Simulated assay, not measured.
Amino acid sequence: MGDLATKGRLPYNAIGVLDGDKEDQSHGCIVLPGSEAPERMVFGELKANGWAQLLDRFGIGAGSLYQFLDDAIRAPDHHKWTELVGDRILKSKQSVWEILANQWARTCVRPDDAKRVTDEIKAAVARASERPKRQSIEVTEAVDVAAAHKEEVTSPAELSDAERPERHIYQDLFGNDP
């Protein structure tokens, strides 16, 4: 997706962001700091820093919170860690991740990593804003056009070449006809 975004082949401006452990697949993407899954990195670095200031952020006692966090890390699927913590403290997994990631960014991210990611995002936004807005026809627009011509349309394939949405979408993505 990042490659399509940087080449302006999407029907909208976009920025690709990729986990640090997927750097080998990063063509056109901004790569997050680290070389392991973000959950593993965030939990691990916060634990190494004594769960830096999480008590205030979660608003529960140290004994319970630290046990819930430690228990989550022992689970084999790191994608479930925030859900496991959230179930114990009655918060959504998104809320747990937001708190952990925010605290990690404040206390664990190296300044050079923070500057690199920030600079890459700013540059990507600047490049995206310089690209002209792309126009593409939507399926509903194509059906409306056909209906205006009083044609009975049961599928996009019955539309004329100019009205076929998949042709326009393909042209927007790949720059040529299918």
Rank of each mutant, 00 (worst) to 15 (best):
A101W: 13
T118V: 00
V42A: 14
P156G: 00
A123W: 00
E45V: 09
H168T: 06
D177P: 02
D87C: 12
R57Y: 00
G175A: 07
S64M: 06
Q171W: 02
A124S: 01
A148I: 06
L90F: 05
S155R: 07
N49W: 11
V109N: 02
D71M: 13
A162Y: 10
A142M: 00
V42S: 12
R106F: 06
G50F: 08
V117Q: 03
K133D: 12
H79G: 03
D113V: 07
L69K: 13
R40A: 09
R110T: 10
A128Q: 08
Q171L: 15
I89W: 05
R110V: 09
H168E: 15
E151S: 12
V85A: 14
D172S: 15
A48R: 15
W97D: 13
S92E: 06
A48P: 12
D112A: 14
I73Y: 12
E138D: 14
P38Q: 10
A62C: 05
A128K: 07
R116P: 02
E36V: 11
I137P: 07
P132W: 07
V139T: 14
G175F: 06
W104L: 14
E152I: 15
K91W: 01
A123T: 01
S64W: 11
H79I: 11
L55C: 05
I121M: 00
K133F: 13
H149V: 11
A105Y: 05
S95Y: 01
S160K: 12
D161P: 12
F68H: 08
Q94F: 04
E163V: 11
N176F: 04
K122S: 03
K133E: 15
H78V: 11
N49Q: 05
A142D: 01
V96R: 08
H79M: 14
Q94N: 07
D119F: 01
A72E: 14
R40F: 09
E120F: 03
R57D: 08
P76M: 03
Y170L: 15
I73H: 09
K115P: 00
G86R: 05
R40D: 05
E152D: 08
V109M: 06
G50E: 11
F68S: 09
H149Q: 15
L173N: 06
H149Y: 07
F68Y: 10
I121A: 00
Q67M: 09
D77Y: 07
V143G: 05
I89S: 12
E120S: 00
N102V: 04
